[in-house]
């Protein structure tokens, strides 16, 4: 087994709720453990409010987690003081969702891409200029853009600039937070292809946060599905998309419309009723129990622990799946 670049254990992140909610705490991330292996793309999939972005922000330490630990290449960065963290930052980079707010409107493309180099002072001015040029080329932009301002670029071009900034220091880990969600289909394809190519040539590991299942399936080696601050299912791409066990994952897969009228109209849809409950007051027991068709009494009382579905690391948190598996084992 290859080494883990990122290990997150029992991560918990709470925010103070808005004043009108009576000073209670929003439990954005309740208990998340995950690993990103060397050279792997791990998809973190979930709907709005599932806490997936918060996990990403904790990993890059834009947020300081309430509890749990984050280890990057073996080093615990959970509460590392910023002076100590700074050199490590060059190895963990992030790409953002919004191609418009993620670039400083008053800086040219070359200044933007050079910023990480300047921050870490690792290169001479000339080396830096060359590196910036090469990186910009690498993300599929022409040299002409170097002196442009972001507002002169299209959304897809801006997102490429964002990628160039993240990759100019050749990081080991890239956190990509919905990097293609704001883009049109034809532009999105280019960015996804580029990500695949860059990941293969540069070999970085990637935590890819998305709500789009088809994007996750296209890109990711392994996928973790989040619901209400917890990972409910994790496994390889084949396991999650081909043999999902958790009722929530199954519902998600059934809910995403397929761009094919024949398939879309003929398939079985078993979509969860209702909407996710508030993260201020998550339900006791399994967080899905109020919406789950399989839920029984145990689900309302006791939070399910991780259940190993396959040797490869397909893990599900669901009492009913566990019972099924136990039954299968007993039968054989």
């Amino acid at each position: 087994m290859t080494a883990a670049v990122l290990e997150v254990e029992n991560l918990r992140m709470e925010f103070r709720a808005p004043r009108n909610a009576g000073g209670r705490r929003v439990q954005a991330v309740r208990d998340v453990s995950l690993e990103v292996q060397e050279g792997e793309i791990l998809g973190l999939v979930g709907e709005t409010g599932s806490g997936k972005t918060t996990v990403g922000k904790c990993v890059v330490r834009l947020l300081r987690p309430t509890a749990g630990s984050i280890r990057f290449m073996g080093e615990d960065i959970t509460a590392m003081p910023s002076s100590q963290l700074r050199p490590l930052r060059s190895r963990i980079q992030m790409v953002f969702q919004d191609p418009y707010s993620s670039l400083d409107p008053r800086m040219t493309v070359s200044q933007i891409v050079a910023e990480p180099l300047r921050a870490h002072g690792t290169h001479s001015r000339r080396e830096a200029a060359g590196l910036v040029r090469r990186t910009v080329e690498r993300v599929g932009l022409s040299q002409q853009v170097l002196d442009r301002y972001p507002n002169e670029l299209s959304g897809g071009q801006r997102q490429r600039v964002g990628l160039a900034r993240a990759l100019v220091l050749e990081p080991r880990l890239l956190i990509a937070d919905e990097p293609v969600s704001a883009l049109d289909v034809s532009v999105r394809a280019g960015i996804l292809n580029l990500l695949v190519d860059l990941q293969r040539t540069m070999g970085f590991s990637c935590l890819f946060i998305t709500h789009d299942l088809s994007v996750a399936e296209f890109l990711c080696d392994r996928v973790a599905v989040m619901y209400l601050g917890e990972i409910v299912e994790v496994g390889t791409r084949d396991e999650v998309f081909g043999a999902a066990r958790h009722p929530y994952t199954r519902s998600l897969l059934g809910a995403a419309p397929l761009a094919d009228p024949v398939e879309q109209r003929s398939r079985q849809r078993a979509i969860l009723p209702g909407e996710p409950p508030s993260a201020i007051d998550p339900p006791p027991g399994c967080s899905l129990n109020p919406r789950c068709p399989l839920a029984d009494r145990r689900c309302t009382e006791e939070a399910p622990g991780p259940t190993q579905v396959s040797e490869g690391g397909h893990v599900v948190r669901c009492h009913r799946v566990q019972e099924q598996l136990d039954l299968e084992v007993a039968r054989s």
């Binding site: 834009l62 992030m94 953002f96 919004d98 993620s102 400083d104 990480p116 921050a119 964002g162 900034r165």
Partner: peptide
Amino acid sequence: EQDFVQAAIVTGVRDRVILFRHLFPN
């Protein structure tokens, strides 16, 4: 809260630089 400032933080840009280069001009 803008992503470009967050990006600068993630990149390891010093606070002083963030204040002068990103905040003040904008």
